[in-house]
Write a protein that binds this DNA or RNA. Structure first.
Lengths: 405, 405
DNA sequence: GCCACTTATCCCAAGGCTTAGGATAAGCTC
DNA sequence: GAGCTTATCCTAAGCCTTGGGATAAGTGGC
């Protein structure tokens, strides 16, 4: 059983001080670029990384020798030697990402080119205690292992996207605090102990990581990725990297107060963002005003939005109010983080953005200072509502990239 | 007249990719360490920077040859060759920092060891328009220049701590937006054009920079420095560096909404932090409940706090309310940034922290999530309420450190 | 088919940097 | 003054990046 002493997800990547660590640093930069781009060329690497062509070539040669990268055909270069296409060598490694929810776990396996090669869901319709979730996870992993016996030895590690705060204590043990689900603190080892390196991070952050790599936040140095669902989550990108704060709980937005002494939140405090724009809050507000709807999820929210669009004044008022609360929350974040982009995800977010994107954008502008308000785009998560496991699967990839070989 | 194309204050210090830039990087690290420590030794530099002794020695030799560092005596080393003390060569350069307020400018000159060598105030008791402030600044600089003719040729640059957002537009021109003072946007060049390199940054950020270098936030990787005065400001330290966001307006806290549809703020919106814990707001609230006091500043606030301590129920209620609003604001920040330290500065902050520090700390803990709430210290700004100009004077120093010679 | 041309890639020597380890300097204690 | 300790300096070795020339592998025109 391999245990690593708490590999911090995406560690600060200490700045190089020796010639050798400089090389490692450049190598990491190149490998990241190749995995990120999926297909690229030596010249492109040199250009984008700022390295000379000679260095790019030398690093690529090393990566090919290590089996991480391969040449995959070539394209003609208008009147010259054809350009070799470089790709991650997909079958050289696999990574697993798990979206851990209160009703079960969705586990996905990707190859090094980040193609999904297998997936497994385990869980039910009811909310489950942590121990049951751990069992679900174990069974899903067992299924994946059974179906992919040839790939399993190449498993880089497992990334968990978790519904709560993940902290590393002084002894190096990582603990999940999922208070809002009513779970007692549980150590990551207890949750997943399967003979592979396990990485763990808050699910909103893993989703943000996915959007940062392959989605709507791609290439942004400063972005906010909001995850709106039953609860609300946030991933903050600052200086091109995901913010973690001193103990990796930065970005806890759901329990920011937007109304002093306001509505009671399930966290026990009053006036939290989540108490206004979580799905339950929205639908409760509608019901309280006499709204009639079925179910409690995607469908019900759709009825609300359609009703508002169709002229139902009560539905319209609830939608308007929801937009205002959302904007108050996001406006504060714009002032604080000065992002160039806001990405809205989560199933509530996707539903809202289907028709209301423009209104939300205007409302957020109105809720923040004029200067930062004119400097951001608002867009919808490109990877759909379901990118937590993709982002989690990137954690072992990041570890591979930053590793000191 | 020297004009630089908008030197971004404390630029991202692009990661080194060549051997030469690595050297520059290490050199910067060592120089920073020497200026920061004021007195250190070669061995200490090697230890703290992670460089080998040989490299530390070689870099120090280079800095001495450049005239930036000098040996300044030695201390005995229990039974060995004495240890040479290294210091910045104080008289090799000077830097100027200016605290630009609405009633005038406070300008201070420091040598390379960050000893204050001169200061000048220019302004009056009334609020002044931007043009008048520019004239004040020019006259203060002229006075300093006249009194320090021998130092002036060694001036590294001038740093401005400004009461608003400083942005660089696409043409590279830096503009100050000081909306809350009623100033029209004004270019930095217009504000200060004196034949030296001019750096500019929001005043709350420069204060935070001062606390980060020499004050209560020293050594923190993640800290919040709140500046409470008539308005409220914030400097955010993340990953050891001051956060600036995509266009350098990150950290605008004063107009974060803490009460939806709450009190009207001078920014035109409702419910902003500043409308509750700015000095005017606090004293207005007291007056509205019949509080009797004289003046509008330090003295009046003292009367409020003393009254509360002495049993005056109205004063006690106002103080309690102020603490609650402050904590709601700070609690949100704790959730979002997960700091290891909060530093309270500004004259209102200093007054509050004189006797209420413990209560504030507890209240902030109560206003944020349990996990991040248990992980921060709360302390008072060590450099007093007046460190904006010190922080501003650090801007040319940072440019010197990061410069590409 | 052949030649001129273009572009990508490889190879090599030069130069810059860090570092380990030995040599030297400069004090202390006995 | 001998022996010891600690700081500092010096040097050769090993990496790394890079510019520039050499080579590979096409296209287009004739």
């Amino acid at each position: 059983m391999i245990k690593k002493p708490a590999v911090q997800a995406a560690g600060p990547a200490a700045k190089p001080s020796t010639v050798t660590s400089l090389r490692q640093h450049n190598r990491a930069r190149v490998l990241r670029q190749i995995i990120l781009a999926r297909e690229t060329t030596r010249a492109e690497i040199a250009r984008d990384s700022g390295l000379s062509a000679a260095s790019a070539i030398s690093i690529v040669a090393e990566l090919i020798a290590d089996g991480l990268v391969e040449e995959k055909g070539s394209i003609s270069s208008q009147g010259g030697r054809p350009i070799a296409i470089l790709s991650p060598r997909a079958d050289s490694a696999v990574t697993i990402g798990a979206d851990i929810g209160e009703r079960g776990v969705a586990v996905e396996m990707f190859d090094l080119a980040m193609n999904r090669v297998d997936r497994e869901f385990s869980g039910g319709r009811e909310e489950e205690p942590a121990a049951q979730i751990a069992a679900d996870l174990a069974s899903a992993l067992t299924a994946l292992r059974r179906r992919n016996p040839d790939r399993w030895p190449n498993l880089l590690g497992i990334g968990l996207g978790l519904p709560g705060i993940v902290e590393t204590d002084d002894a190096g043990e990582r603990i999940l605090y999922a208070q809002s689900l009513g779970w007692d603190p549980i150590s990551i080892t207890e949750l997943c102990d399967v003979g592979a390196v396990v990485h763990a991070e808050n699910g909103a952050k893993t989703q943000a990581r996915a959007e940062l790599w392959y989605g709507a936040a791609r290439g942004s140095d400063h972005a906010l990725v909001a995850l709106l669902g039953r609860g609300v989550g946030l991933g903050v990108v600052a200086e091109g990297r995901l913010a973690h704060g001193s103990r990796s709980s930065a970005g806890e937005w759901g329990h920011t107060v937007i109304e002093y002494n306001g509505r009671l939140c399930r966290c026990g405090k009053r006036g939290c963002v989540e108490a206004y724009i979580g799905s339950d809050a929205i639908l409760d507000a509608w019901a309280a005003r006499g709204g009639q709807f079925e179910g409690s999820g995607w469908g019900a929210l759709g009825q609300l939005i359609d009703g508002a669009a169709g002229g139902d004044p009560v539905a319209a008022a609830v939608v308007q109010e929801t937009i205002e609360y959302l904007s108050a929350g996001l406006g504060a974040l714009v002032n604080l983080y000065n992002p160039e982009r806001i990405v809205i995800g989560g199933w509530v977010g996707l539903r809202l953005m289907e028709t209301l994107g423009e209104r939300i954008h205007e409302a957020v502008k109105g809720a923040c200072l004029a200067r930062p308000g004119g400097q951001f785009d608002l867009s919808v998560a490109e990877l759909g509502g379901d990118s937590v496991s993709l982002g989690a699967a990137l954690l072992p990839i990041e570890a591979l990239i930053d590793q000191n070989p």
